[in-house]
Design a binder for these strands. Structure first.
Lengths: 248, 248
DNA sequence: TAATTTATATTTGTATGACAAATTAACTTT
DNA sequence: AAAGTTAATTTGTCATACAAATATAAATTA
């Protein structure tokens, strides 16, 4: 008996379409801000129904690869992906990874310490005037006593992102983004009181000064101090959380 | 005139549904391997049509958060995401980031050098017998002269992953995974010849011995040597590539 | 009886057609 | 000329039907 079978297709049509489109984007045949054909047109070309096309497009939208707008000049467009645009994507991955693997805070703190030390050293070497200005701006936001705890958290994140970018190593920035995003939920467990805000801000001020002076040693010292301080706050928050749960 | 308007909803229904489900997964109310209600049931609960529910599910499927199977015992299930399961997700993000941002190889090499040095130091401290055995196994795979260049590349990746995991810092492993995945396409530009394979393998042997001896200094030295060696190969490959393009 | 085959029910996958909503361009009216 | 109106285009949503896969139970056969 001769055996000449067609290749078995296990993945769904919408997945196959999504993969082809993604490939086109990665390959470069679909460049940033290019407009895809309309859904009807795509369904004709791929010989599948519009709902199937739509499912495929939603897959890509979930990855932030495309965006859609209604209307005559609307349609579906290829996104230009920078670090910011990818952070959504990374947040999911990193947050899930941290929450589902029960990674200890000490592991996170250790990794962050080392990575951020590296960022600071490079920032001391390569920081430009623009970097310094941005750091000052972010610091000013933190000094506002009227902002909510959530806003303070986000200002803190922005400050550390700015440090990462001051390193002028985009690969390192990318990795640091992942780490910062992964830490965000943990950071939100803490509600910074005024006294704690003051301490954080003072650390940031010294850090900024060290980067301005291109003093690597001091910069690394301050980072170490802050990571340790945050770790102690985290432990406290965790204990409070545990006590609260016991009462329920 | 009093102003009491309903909140404006800009995102589509399918996105809202997807976000709610994702939140449930992240929050923990939907645990790994839990089965979601059927699509019909979901469409009743969310008060939207089934195609809309499906678009939402495809969004989550694109993020590898869920999987679906047909049939009576089928349905949609929550994925248990470990490091391996996330690599697909990361590969997209990291590859896109590297390719669309034209990150220089020196930036990548520098970041990798620092991160992998850190891995090695921790591996020296915390490596177990199982870690050593795994490293030996991976090394054995590389020694096989019959494997293809692609297989050699993948064996190399596995070796470096094993080092990352020997650090026993899961956060660092996760970050290192991202970096390794991002580098994969670049690594594939090179076709390792026998002489180059020998050099790589010898470096790996010395690295393994250093980790076995818990000799941090030597381990870091070898890593530095290898990263520099790979950088030179990359430069060569890039030049060849450029020459080839000129001829076309 | 035991193994195999056949129905059957369940659930996701796909197709078709229609209408709603948003948005721009052209047109009309004042 | 400015403002409002209409029409056209494109994504967003809905309803319904059927196809395909797959496990369970019933029926058939050796």
């Amino acid at each position: 008996m001769s055996l000449e079978v067609e290749p078995i297709i296990r993945s769904s049509l919408s997945k196959q379409v999504a993969d082809q489109l993604q490939e086109a984007i990665l390959e470069g045949s679909l460049k940033a801000d290019d407009r895809l054909p309309t859904e009807e047109e795509l369904s004709k070309r791929f010989q599948v129904s519009r709902p199937t096309i739509r499912e495929a497009l939603k897959r890509l939208a979930a990855k932030n690869l495309i965006r859609s707008r209604r209307g005559p000049t609307g349609g579906t467009f290829v996104n230009h992906l920078g670090a910011d645009e990818l952070s959504d994507h990374l947040t999911t991955a990193a947050t899930l990874f941290v929450s589902m693997n029960q990674i200890s805070l000490s592991e996170i703190a250790h990794t962050r310490l080392e990575l951020e030390s590296l960022c600071c050293q490079l920032a001391c070497q390569h920081r430009t005037d623009e970097d310094l200005t941005r750091l000052e701006t972010e610091l000013e936001r933190q000094r506002d006593i009227n902002i909510s705890p959530e806003e303070f958290c986000s200002a803190d994140v922005s400050f550390h992102r700015a440090i990462a970018e001051a390193s002028h190593n985009r690969m390192l920035s990318f990795v640091m983004y992942t780490l910062i995003e992964a830490l965000q939920p943990v950071a939100n467990m803490i509600t910074f009181h005024f006294r704690e805000r003051d301490i954080i801000i003072s650390q940031h001020e010294r850090l900024l000064q060290a980067i301005r002076d291109q003093n690597r040693v001091t910069a690394v010292e301050v980072i170490k101090e802050q990571v340790n301080y945050l770790s102690s706050l985290h432990d406290e928050a965790r204990e409070n959380h545990a006590r609260k749960q016991q009462r329920d």
